[in-house]
Structure formats: C-alpha cells, structure tokens
Design a protein around this nucleic acid. Structure first.
Lengths: 199, 199
DNA sequence: GTCTATATGCTGATAGAC
DNA sequence: GTCTATCAGCATATAGAC
C-alpha cells in the first residue's frame, strides 16, 4: 500500500472507507484523519466530495479490468481460459473486498451514468471475450445468455456467501473460491460441444 | 399502500427512502416530510434512528418469508414446487425493489447481528425446504450445495441485471423473471433423478 | 502543499406547549 | 399525538496565512 504521492494516499484511504460504510456515511474529515492530514487539504486534490467519489471508482476499477482481460486472452484453449477467468473473478470477489463492495454499492445506487461508465470501461470487453470463449466451448445457441448465466452465478455466490456462512450445516467449501470454481467448471463440462475427459 | 396508522406510514416511507438511498443518506427530517408530519413526531414512535432502521427491516422482511414458505410447502410435486419457488423469488427480486434493495444493503453492511437475524428469521426455514425439494428431485450427493448454487444464481441474475441492460446485444429476456425461471428449470432437469418429459 | 480558522447549513435528538 | 422551538454537533466547503 506504499503510496508515493498524497493524491493516491487519499484515494486508497477513501476507497477503503467508502467500501466499508458507503459514500454518505464517510465524511471528508474521517478520510483526512485516516490519511493523517488536515481536512481542508483534500480540497486541494479534489474540488468536492462528488469528484473524490468518482475518482475513487475510476482508480479502483481501472486496474482490475486490464487484469481480467489478460487472463481471458491468455492464449490457452477455451476450457483452461474459462477456468482461469472464473477462478480469477471468484477470488477477486471473495478477497478484494474493497473493489467488490464498491462494485456492489454501484449496482445498488443505479445511477445510470455511472453504471454505463462501469459497463463500458470495466465489463464490456471482458464480457465479449467471455462470450467468445463460451461460444467456442459450449454447445449452445445463445452464448451471450451463457455468459450472463455464468457471471450472474459467480456474482451471486459472493453475494449469498454472507448468508451462507450463517446457515445451519454450511461447510467452509461453500464459500471457497477454488471449490466453487471446480463446481462451476464441472457444470459447464456437461454442456461442452464434445465430451471432455474428466480429470 | 393504505396505511391505517401513523407508525406504519412512517415505516413504509422510511423503507422506500432507505432502500433507494441508504440509511445514512436519509435524514429523519426527510422521512417526516415524506409522511407529512413534523420531524419530532418520529421520536414518539421510535426512540432513535437506529431503532427505526431495525423496525423497517423487520417490517419489510417478516411478510416475505411467510409468503415463500407457503409456496415451498404448497403440496405439489418437487419440480412444480421448485418452479413456483424460483419464479416467486425471481419476481420478488426484480419487482419488489424496496425489499430487494434493503436485502442487498444488509448484505453489504455485514453487521453480524443483523445478518444472523436475517438468516434465522427470513432464510433458514425456506432454505431448508429448498434443500428437501432438491434432495427429492435431483441426483446429487450434496443437496445443500445445490440449494446454495440455485439461490446464488437467482440472486446473481438480479444483481447483474443492472449491468446486463447496458451491455451491447442484450435482449430484454435476459432480465425477465419468467424467462430466467424457464432457463433455470431446464438446467435443473438435466440433473433430475429420472429423465423427465420435456414440455 | 499544508495548515488554521471559519462560514453556513443540516443532523439527530430533546423540551415543553397544545 | 402532534406541534414549534431549540440545542449541540458535525457536515461540506472556503479564505487566507505560512
């Protein structure tokens, strides 16, 4: 987390606080205190809170989309690529709580402009790659729907995990990215174009 | 929405505002204004904001859990019952925005006490019924995992819908509860104990 | 760049009249 | 039960010294 300049230190601290408690629950004061500067100093880097929020979102999401794109286009064959992508996304959702919570908060806000931005800059390209992979791998007339199904399920596993861990009889593997990845890949194999060898 | 007494009118107005904007973004003043009373009047019914928030959650979620329980125990055979339950849940998630957004906000907050409460009072019984149905219908060694998978997917479809509607080439049926229900039931049929007739 | 000081408004909550 | 009046505290944001 070693931040070279003040602007980035502010973004990192703000991202953590916004993710954990939401935008309106976190004051400029608390962000400044977390960074260790005076409150007014934030206004030297960001003209107001709204601009800080938008900068945080851009800052957090920009890196992730490139990372996923690399995995999706890694040159391996479709099933391997798919497995890597699913594993990458699940691990991100379960372990990168800052990005994940900010993402879910954006979905809740349903600000059309921000969602459009998020879709175009973070999701669209990766989603297109996913559709191509599924089209190559699966025997389905609608690979777009398959991609929506797969992405939805992955997102849902993460969201529902908060409840699952409180359910009676829940095992740890129900909320473990690797176990979920294995399970989903087994499911997909059932719909593969040609029967694949197991293990 | 005809609310007989003031307490319920406050709960309804507060639920809508909290769902749309979050707890800390909505002031007691705005709730009072929405109801059409003076701000101080809210403190006659709720001792503080925290108690109002908790009352809203109880008020909104208590009715829904009974409704789902009825569907799950409706006496029909497993696949019919399952289809009704999936359809019910998807329709709720896509159309009852107040309950859905409050639910997702609770998942984000991850206040252990509140999640425990939510799990025990809203989810556990219905989830157990779902596990039994899946155990009867599917050929699987782990019906609990099947229930988690199904619930996660349904939740994920709703969450991801906000992005899907902004993706290039998205069709309306990708975010339609009935179409998603049909798709999921077809998927489950593949894992049924005995081959079921289609259509 | 970072600070102190401050303006202005909104917040949750209380007191007490009716 | 509902109101008006009011409090102390915290919010965002600005001005200007260093």
């Amino acid at each position: 987390m070693a931040a070279p300049n003040m602007r980035e230190k502010i973004l990192v601290a703000a991202a953590q606080l916004f993710a954990a408690e939401g935008y309106s629950a976190v004051s400029m004061r608390r962000i400044a205190t977390a960074v260790g500067v005076a409150q007014a100093n934030l206004y030297y880097y960001f003209k107001n809170k709204e601009e800080l929020v938008r900068s945080v979102l851009t800052f957090v999401f920009s890196g992730r989309s490139r990372s996923l794109a690399a995995v999706l286009e890694s040159g391996a064959d479709a099933p391997q690529c798919l497995e890597k992508a699913v594993s990458w996304f699940l691990t991100l959702l379960f372990e990168d709580t800052v990005a994940t919570k900010l993402f879910f908060r954006e979905l809740l806000t349903d600000d059309r402009d921000r969602l459009q931005f998020l879709t175009e800059n973070v999701f669209q390209d990766s989603f297109d790659s996913l559709v191509r992979l599924l089209d190559a791998y699966l025997d389905t007339p609608d690979p777009v729907h398959a991609a929506i199904f797969l992405t939805s399920t992955v997102i849902g596993y993460c969201q529902f995990a908060g409840i699952v861990s409180h359910l009676h009889g829940a095992k740890p593997e129900y909320v473990a990215p690797q176990a979920i990845t294995r399970h989903l890949m087994q499911l997909l194999r059932r719909f593969a174009k040609q029967p694949a060898m197991s293990s």
